[in-house]
Design a protein around this nucleic acid. Structure first.
Lengths: 103, 103
DNA sequence: ACTGTATATGCCTTGACACGTATATAACCA
DNA sequence: TGGTTATATACGTGTCAAGGCATATACAGT
């Protein structure tokens, strides 16, 4: 049951997998090598990402090449929009700091 | 131990709390009323959000007024940046559809 | 067919977390 | 002080997800 993208990117290792795929498609073995994680663990994350529509797979002989499919991240971006408009400026940060000191 | 913003916004009810705060600061009771959730549950979410720096509290007599502090969401936005550049166009979506049909 | 390589799945354990109920704390008011 | 309102914490419970190890599956080369 394809999880929401929010939950998908909550897992640090999954974010690292996605980050690794930014450079282009990669076989599972490559990902295992770059994340200090067991091969089954990586395969399971890839499955979750696949079911969530964040990655695609392509079969190449025994290997399976995973690539990005960032479409669903759009939902996160959309949700973020109203908050982006409320981004704190540096002055706000200073103000918060002073408020914290006043406590 | 202030959780990363990614984990904070993974919880749907927490997102709803943040969304409710977009309109301005609110006492806990208001939030309880708008999310069909027990008061303790809301208080706990607020605690997590507070520790994560996503909300501020202000005491007003017996009430505690929570307000947004969206700064940490910047981290999510930053992480999202490289993916945003890879957003699928409608043509990409068509292509994916065709690829899926070809399987 | 047999072996090796690459990846996926099954099973199990563990830890985290979301929730509710009950209770504590705090501020207000009479 | 006692009672009432508003919110926080303690505690117990159920669920779920992430990880590892073992094993299955798929493909390739001999």
């Amino acid at each position: 049951m394809a999880a929401a993208p929010f939950a998908l990117i909550a897992e640090p290792n999954r974010r690292r997998i996605l980050d690794a795929l930014l450079a282009g498609e990669r076989p599972v073995g490559d990902l295992v090598a770059s994340l200090a994680l067991s091969q089954p663990a990586v395969s399971k994350h890839l499955r979750v990402l696949r079911e969530g529509g964040l990655v695609n797979v392509r079969t190449d002989a025994q290997r399976r090449l995973y690539s990005l499919s960032p479409g669903p991240l759009h939902e996160v971006d959309d949700w973020l929009a109203p908050y982006r408009e409320r981004w704190p400026s540096r002055l706000d940060a200073l103000e918060q700091h002073l408020n914290a000191m006043a406590d």
